[in-house]
Write a protein that binds this DNA or RNA. Structure first.
Length: 502
RNA sequence: CGGGGUGUAGCGCAGUCUGGCUAGCGCAUCUGGUUUGGGACCAGAGGGUCGUAGGUUCGAAUCCUAUCACCCCGACCA
């Protein structure tokens, strides 16, 4: 049977966006659901993207003075109870270990043996366990700041899960820092949200808005939560990273105290910040098209896939040798923090099938080399962002590869930004707001980012609940201004981005 | 937790109402052949505790009871 002639992915984005998202992941072979409810298996192609993210972010964390460490997966339940808002926020979604060891149940199966004295919570986030250690480590102002990050998995027992966007277990990094002053901690919080924004825009080619969360959307126990917000192709917002100023809430709950330079005992100021495998979801939903995954070159596990074309064993060796030679030459070319990454695909598959395989996986550049190309010392090149392939002299290809990759990277960002800006509006009244978020039966693609003055969360909540819209953030870079609340009509200086969200 | 739905080959499904050939189809896989600068074609093959347990019956994928799992809508989602 022939595959659809037009698009590799069915349904298309227009037809059914959520289903399209699942199909892109499947077609690119990035991840799949596991036998464990809500938990995904990240397959090599997906994991390689994560490794690229890790490597680049980790270098940024180190550059900004942080070190990596590792803390336990299990947290004594009592630790979580110490900060009231924190418990409230996380209790419902915690997985809890109540027993240790297994024994024969007498029916050929197993059963848990000994109950634990105190249940252990599988970390939903590590503020409490890390704070408990910090309390021991911090005695003097000379012990500060503590700037530590950990790469880990966390578990949040969500009721409804979706690959990469919300899974019961996910991979992330969490930075946890301790400072002597509020100013320093606040500066850290801002520094890290800017690291995330820079990463999103420069590496992921995903335009983001940096903003502050309103009290209702804040991390439980935080004084201030900063986030980066991105717009997906269905115009919904995705929170892609957060950075929290925790004030002294956790240090008081956990007794993180130190003697300052005036010989007085003071509670420390803490922060935490994190990004997760959800970034991969953001990547997919920002750039991919109806032919599958589209990867920004800086994160692509392979920049170039080389496909040898041959009919018989005679040409095979010759063509393969040329492919290996090209791979070697390309790999000697520097590209950002490494070199050009090249794969040779000499699997025994038909050419068309191979080509589509790599299109669906989002490889930026495909190169085909056959006997005719050898004769003319040229290569046949296809770009993921262009429908047609073109022949060109081999030397021209190798000389331009780095700049072509950069150009593709920049194009992706520009395209995503234009897409977002086209759906970002300023709205002044409730009727404008309702019209903007009105549900269209023919399409799930309605709404976008609405920038509006609002009096308070309470004042707009009923309308937001009705329309399933949330306050994403109060952008930190917007100009100070005053206007009138789009719901109550009363004067206010608060202005936020409103959107439907994942 | 409330409402609805589905469990049959790796994936997608038909068959269930009305019990009865050896449980079938498409895709995928494997083999052989013809092909090959573009998602091939022909022929053949392998692959199933019909979610699980019990019951009714000469006979159960099909009827009955219980149970488990998953999906959709809602609630929930710092």
């Amino acid at each position: 049977m022939n595959k659809p002639a037009k698009n590799a992915i069915s349904p298309t984005r227009q037809e059914n966006y959520p289903e399209w998202f699942q199909q892109v992941i499947k077609a690119a072979d990035m991840a799949e659901n596991s036998p464990v409810r809500g938990c995904m298996v990240i397959k090599p192609w997906g994991y390689a993207i994560w490794e690229n993210m890790q490597r680049i972010l980790d270098a940024e964390f180190k550059r900004t003075g942080h070190q990596n460490a590792y803390f336990p997966l299990f947290i004594p339940m009592s630790y979580l109870e110490k900060e009231a808002k924190h418990v409230e926020g996380f209790a419902k979604e915690c997985a809890v270990v109540t027993h240790h060891r297994l024994e024969d149940n007498g029916a050929g199966g197993l059963r848990p043996a000994g109950p634990l004295e105190e249940p252990l919570v599988v970390r939903p986030t590590s503020e409490t366990i890390i704070g408990a250690m910090y309390a021991k480590w911090v005695q003097s102002y000379r012990d500060l700041p503590i700037l530590i990050n950990q790469w880990a998995n966390v578990v949040r027992w969500e009721l409804r899960t979706r690959l990469f966007l919300r899974t019961a277990e996910f991979l992330w990094q969490e930075g946890h820092t301790v400072h002597a002053t509020a100013e320093e901690a606040i500066a850290e919080t801002h520094q890290m949200v800017h690291v995330y924004a820079e990463f999103a825009e420069k590496v992921m080619a995903v335009p983001v808005i940096i903003g502050e969360k309103t009290p209702g959307e804040r991390f439980p126990g935080a004084v201030t939560t900063l986030s980066i917000e991105a717009m997906m192709q269905d115009y919904k917002a995705l929170q892609a990273g957060t950075s929290h100023f925790l004030g002294q809430n956790f240090s008081k709950a956990q007794e993180i105290k130190f003697q300052d330079q005036n010989n007085e005992l003071a509670f420390a100021w803490t922060t935490s910040w994190g990004v997760s495998t959800r970034l991969i979801g953001a990547l997919i939903m920002t750039h991919s098209d109806d032919d599958g995954l589209v990867l920004p070159p800086r994160l692509a596990p392979a920049h170039v896939v080389v496909m040898p074309i041959y009919r018989d064993d005679e040409t095979r060796n010759e063509v393969l040798a040329a492919c290996k030679n090209l791979k070697q030459e390309l790999e000697a070319i520097r590209y950002h923090e490494g070199s050009v990454r090249v794969e040779i695909d000499d699997r025994d598959l038909r050419g068309g099938e191979k080509k589509w395989h790599h299109i669906k996986r989002g490889v930026p550049i495909r190169v085909e080399i056959g006997p005719k190309d050898l004769a003319s010392d040229s290569v046949f090149v296809g770009r993921r962002d262009e429908a047609k392939s073109n022949g060109m002299p081999r030397s021209e290809f190798t000389a331009s590869i780095a700049s072509v990759l950069d150009q593709m990277q920049n194009n992706l960002f520009a395209k995503a930004k234009a897409y977002r800006d086209a759906r970002s509006v300023d709205l002044k009244t409730e009727s404008e707001f309702r019209a903007f978020f009105a549900t269209d039966d023919d399409s799930t693609k309605v709404g976008g980012f609405a920038s509006c003055f609002f009096e308070s969360e309470e004042a707009v909540k009923p309308l937001l609940d009705e329309l399933k819209v949330t306050i994403r953030c109060i952008p930190i870079e917007q100009e100070k201004a005053s206007g009138t609340c789009f719901v109550t009509g009363r004067p206010t200086e608060q202005k936020a981005i409103f959107a439907r969200a994942y």
